[in-house]
Amino acid sequence: MARISIKVDGVEYADDVEPRTLLVYYLRDQVGKTGTVIGCDTSNCGSCTVHLDGTSVKSCTVLAVQADGHEVTTIEGLAKDGELHPMQQAFHENHALQCGFCTPGMVMQSIDLLRDNPSPTGEEVRHGLEGNLCRCTGYQNIVKAVLAAAESAPVRVGTAGGTL
């Protein structure tokens, strides 16, 4: 067992973990952040995407011990005081989700995408989301949502994440 301390969605945690534990399992099983989900075992689907120190990572590719001393933001840490993050709002407004399983990862990746490129083209959004699979929406409304979020609140969207 290894001792780690991590700030998750603004709260400090100190826990013992098996060194082989992946960050996504730590978040789900030990911290109870079940909003972050697991869709594959080959790092292809992006369902598990969170922000590590403000940058998106697939939490199934990071060991919990690697996050020791760092700050993680999950989908559950985005809304503030009952108010949705602009990206969450944009997903809702543009019907960018159906079953919603890919949504946590999509939202986290989309925020990161806009941070890198605050006013992307549709094509750039598509490439920026290449690592996140969705089986329901055909992606059209996801792209629309990201473009809408970029349009409506570039600054706020771009500064979200672990540094909030």
Binding site: T34, G35, T36, E76, L78, H95, L97, G100
Partner: peptide
């Protein structure tokens, strides 16, 4: 806009 979305976009699933 869908009722379902509230929980799904916030991870309250």
């Amino acid at each position: 806009r869908r009722k379902e979305d509230g929980r799904l976009v916030t991870g309250r699933t």
